[in-house]
């Protein structure tokens, strides 16, 4: 899906935990995430810390959409 959406010229960020799959299918902008059942969360944290974590990841993802890349790039 990532690749086909990007084919329309729309920049897309893939937020995924198994980044090897993300790279092998050809995502160009990747943000590594926390875990498969909660990519942008962590139920072991309190609500405030979890929200901060999610905000950090999503902000990184959104900012990555504003960065030009040459090929598959991870934003860590």
């Amino acid at each position: 899906m990532v690749k086909e959406i990007e084919r329309y010229g729309i920049p897309i960020i893939h937020m995924a935990t198994i980044t090897t799959i993300s790279q092998s299918v050809g995502a160009n902008r990747i943000v590594p995430t926390v875990a498969i059942p909660y990519p942008v969360g962590d139920p072991s944290m309190n609500e405030k810390d979890e929200h901060e974590l999610r905000r950090d990841l999503v902000l990184r993802a959104v900012k990555a959409l504003g960065v030009n890349v040459e090929g598959p790039t991870q934003f860590e």
């Binding site: 899906m1 990532v2 959406i5 329309y8 010229g9 729309i10 920049p11 897309i12 960020i13 893939h14 937020m15 995924a16 935990t17 198994i18 799959i21 993300s22 995430t33 498969i36 059942p37 990519p39 942008v40 999503v58 993802a61 959104v62 959409l65």
Partner: peptide, 13 residues
């Protein structure tokens, strides 16, 4: 594309 969306955030589990 038709809706003029500027960027996409796609999450995978």
């Amino acid at each position: 594309k038709e809706a003029g969306v500027s960027g996409v955030l796609l999450t995978s589990t």
